[in-house]
């Protein structure tokens, strides 16, 4: 136990020596990793918040279920019983076509305008429970008897979803590009360290050190670069995020923000994991050449 601890401390010592030997190069690597992870973290937070607000928006949306003009009484009765029995529905309200016309007229300022043939159908205003599968409900309700169509602000929600998808794709490409850049920069830094220590490595091989023993300090070096990069990115995110939230809440009080510590904790370990993976992968790329 004591010896394996000493063995590990040998590797860590060698790794720290490696970091010390090329300070500028390592600082450059560290900043790149930190920037990449900061952008990744910001992106994850943005997506998380967007999803949260989309959910909120959907939960606040009221659906209108339009009935067919030729709907029969038995169909109407069955529809009511379906509305009553559906677990997704909080409440519903019947809106007769005359009442609907009146609402439209008031809304448009046409109170005095005489409409001979009311084009509007009878309808139900329906409010759903928060978090229910919106799309599933819409497709279900469309198959109910006597239902002509649903107006759900579907288009608005759809546009928002498209926007989110676009943001997700752009973010993903950005993170991929930056991640690859970080990977290459880490690999390059480690390659320089390997070059700087070629005498040590040749002696290690000569006296019978195993490949993994030789690689270990460089892996630790990459690991530390990733870990430190993640720590810097996290520090920036966790101090910057509340400020941004406070600002935005002032400007747009209707927005909901993720401030749950469990959420932020999950983000933290995701970033740390990404950093460590980047670091280890970067070192592995440059260590392929170290072989017996």
């Amino acid at each position: 136990m004591r010896d394996s601890a000493r063995g590990l401390s040998f590797h860590v010592q060698e790794a720290l020596d490696g970091l010390r030997q090329a300070v500028v190069m390592n600082l450059a690597t560290l900043s790149t990793v930190a920037i990449t992870l900061f952008i990744l973290g910001s992106f994850l937070l943005f997506m998380r918040n967007m999803n949260e607000n989309l959910k909120l928006l959907r939960s606040q949306l009221q659906l209108t279920v339009y009935l067919k003009k030729e709907i029969t009484e038995p169909q109407k009765t069955e529809l009511v019983s379906r509305l009553q029995g559906d677990p997704s529905i909080v409440n519903y309200r019947f809106v007769g076509r005359d009442a609907a016309l009146k609402t439209v007229k008031e809304w448009m300022g046409w109170s005095d305008f005489e409409v001979r043939d009311n084009p509007l159908p009878d309808s139900f205003d329906v409010k759903l429970h928060e978090g229910v599968d919106f799309d599933a409900f819409v497709s279900r309700a469309k198959s109910w008897p006597g239902v002509d169509d649903l107006s759900v602000g579907e288009k608005e929600v759809g546009a928002l979803i498209k926007l989110l998808d676009l943001a997700r794709s752009v973010g993903l490409v950005l993170v991929l590009v930056l991640g690859t850049a970080s990977l290459m920069i880490i690999a390059n830094t480690i390659k320089l360290t390997v070059y700087a220590r070629r005498t040590e490595i040749s002696i290690m091989k000569l006296v019978g050190a195993t490949n993994w023993f030789i690689r270990m300090p460089f892996l630790i070096e990459g690991f530390l670069q990733g870990l430190l990069g993640a720590a810097i990115a996290l520090a920036l995110l966790l101090t910057g995020y509340p400020v941004v939230v406070a600002r935005l809440s002032g400007i747009a009080p209707f927005l909901r923000f993720v401030t749950d510590s469990a959420d932020l904790f999950r983000l933290s370990w995701q970033l740390v994991l990404m950093g460590v993976l980047l670091g280890l992968l970067g070192s592995l790329i440059s260590l392929r050449r170290i072989a017996v």
Partner: peptide, 23 residues
């Protein structure tokens, strides 16, 4: 092929350290 930044002791011990010899 000695390591100039290490002492005589460390240069010699290096061969044992990198082969996991007990302290």
């Amino acid at each position: 092929r000695l390591l100039d930044n290490r002492t005589v002791f460390d240069n010699v011990a290096f061969a044992l350290r990198v082969t996991n010899t007990p302290y």
